[in-house]
Design a protein around this nucleic acid. Structure first.
Lengths: 344, 344
DNA sequence: CTGAAAGCGCTAACAG
DNA sequence: CTGTTAGCGCTTTCAG
């Protein structure tokens, strides 16, 4: 409990450099130099100014600074899917990297509405952000914001314009990793149950999976990728269908952790042992799902936080003058858990 | 594909009011008045200025405005748990409400580290935010930030200082709602399996549940609340223990959707029908869990987005001069699904 | 080494 | 109705 011996509502004007200068008995110019470590100030004066600033808990007004400097030290983070779970890690990584450079982040959620998006972009520009990170809501390409007076980096969803810089997860590579992981674990009769084929993520992962199988001279059990929906129900249903026709299967690549939960559920009901009889690997590595299932799920991690961090880094580089363009794909990594343990 | 017929890197100085004024053949003062709808401008002039501003895509410099006005039109959103799923909805609600008032949001994640938190507060103050929303990572009370030159609202986790304004979900009331829902559905032999008792959320919900049972003259099956962990495993284990000793049970209040998933899992294995033999209600209403289980889960929704919206509203009121203090609890609501359908 | 002066972009008096 | 002037808080010449 904090004591309540302070003024009721401190409508005190924030302390300014002028206040500090006055209290230290110097001019604002000198105070400014002292506080900014300019070397044309006597050491004794510098210390005195610092002490006074400290005592008054002086905080330089970033607005005034920004106005003068022509740059605000802020970046805009424009998301379209705050509630979805994919934006958040990207956002965290970006916030972290940006903060490490003493810049602050404006957060805007356009909720997938391009009108709202346009509005936010204007608002951010009027706040003179030094750059913009646009986080998409799916891995499908999205319209470019076009030419803006500040650099823009697209993360998760690439821009449709190849002149923009986009950072994405390498879903094709992820598909490869998944299949190769199973193959290395000794599995040879592999099927792929995944989500909605209108999503690039589903198609890309499938491409990777089939390519890896082909390279290894292995068939895709069932002959074709089982596209469906991104939920447990589809995982359950697809698994039942699969087993009815292909009881010889010994591994399943699930397109998401959610689908995998459904797969595990059906395998349990069919009395198929995991990983003994069938190994299961999935995508997203969403801890809450992957580590609470029985057995725990091996999953391909998209490294979204790293993606966000990288996006911020590229943006800071661009702000610094080094602009890149094109699509940069970040490699995924497999997080191994029980569901793909090699047998015996 | 956008055409690439623009200058390579438009390092164009952003267009200022002076540019507009010049192009419109008026003084900056007149231009300012025209654009801000001050009524001391001839209609014809006003229109001309507007047209020119439009053509040059003029964006008023919010930094300059803020500097002059003494308020920046921004608020800080300080979270401690961006990756956790509870902050996000609060954040969304707050962002939405703040944006509706044409203010922008600075996002900072302190990751539960008070040093980092202090740093961010300083940074936000130096950016002259007009107010601050602090989103906690659990429902336990947290230390106050103390006296700050701008109003602060605590959301989700209340401040330890009752002189601060805190907005929380009414977990005790939520516990009551859960039990009452079961009782109204005709259940009379109710148990409560919940999470870690060191969490206020677990204790508060338990308080509500037991109070409602007492009011109804019903026993708590097993005599005491089963505290444990916030995960599926505990839900599974606790359910097995419960049934070994109390096969007469006809309803379970689970402390979270995750725990409920474990409960359902065990009930399934015990061949107990849900909701036929036992009804299950839980907390959080986390769609991904509650709607993907079999049967779908009835769950107490904490209305976190509304909580965020309310926090923003209160903050805006405080910025406007109307400060409140104390703890304001937002009522929960039950989202009914299959798991508590009345029998017959 | 220190201070006076100018100016970042904008708005609000106050004159004309 | 319009323009001139001043100043928000800060940094940066440029003289002392």
């Amino acid at each position: 409990m904090a004591p309540k011996d302070v003024d009721p509502v401190p409508i005190l004007r924030a302390v300014t450099l002028t206040d500090v200068a006055k209290a230290a008995g110097v001019s604002v110019a000198t105070a400014s130099k002292a506080l900014n470590g300019r070397d044309q100030v006597k050491a004794e004066t510098r210390d005195r100014v610092h002490r006074v600033a400290e005592k008054l808990s002086f905080q330089p007004n970033a607005l005034a600074r920004g106005l003068l400097a022509g740059r605000s030290g802020t970046v805009g983070l424009l998301t379209n899917d705050l509630e979805g779970r994919f934006s958040i890690p990207v956002l965290m990584g970006a916030e972290d990297a940006v903060g490490a450079d003493r810049m602050s982040v404006f957060l805007c959620d356009a909720r997938g509405d391009s009108i709202r998006e346009q509005y936010h972009v204007q608002a951010l520009l009027s706040r003179r952000v030094d750059g913009l990170i646009v986080v998409g809501s799916s891995t499908d390409a999205r319209p470019s914001l076009g030419e803006l007076p500040v650099p823009v980096v697209y993360a998760y969803a690439p821009s449709e314009n190849p002149d923009d810089l986009s950072l994405i997860s390498d879903n094709v590579g992820g598909g490869r990793l998944a299949a190769e992981h199973l193959i290395r674990s000794g599995r040879t009769r592999i099927a792929h149950i995944t989500g909605d084929p209108t999503y690039a993520a589903a198609r890309d992962r499938a491409t990777g999976v089939t390519a890896a199988l082909e390279d290894a001279g292995l068939p895709l059990v069932g002959d074709r990728v089982m596209f469906g929906e991104w939920n447990e129900g589809w995982g359950r249903g697809a698994t039942r269908m699969l087993f009815a026709n292909h009881p010889e299967i010994d591994a399943i690549v699930a397109g998401s952790d959610q689908i995998a939960r459904g797969v595990l559920d059906s395998l349990h009901e069919l009395d198929v042992g995991v990983p003994r009889d069938v190994a299961v690997i999935s995508f997203d590595n969403w801890a809450i799902l992957a580590t609470n299932s029985r057995p725990q799920l091996t999953s391909v991690d998209l490294r979204l936080e790293q993606l966000g961090r990288l996006a911020a880094q590229r943006l800071l580089e661009a702000i610094g003058g080094t602009r890149h363009s094109g699509v940069e794909a970040l490699a995924c990594r497999v997080v191994t858990r029980e569901s793909t343990m090699p047998v015996g």
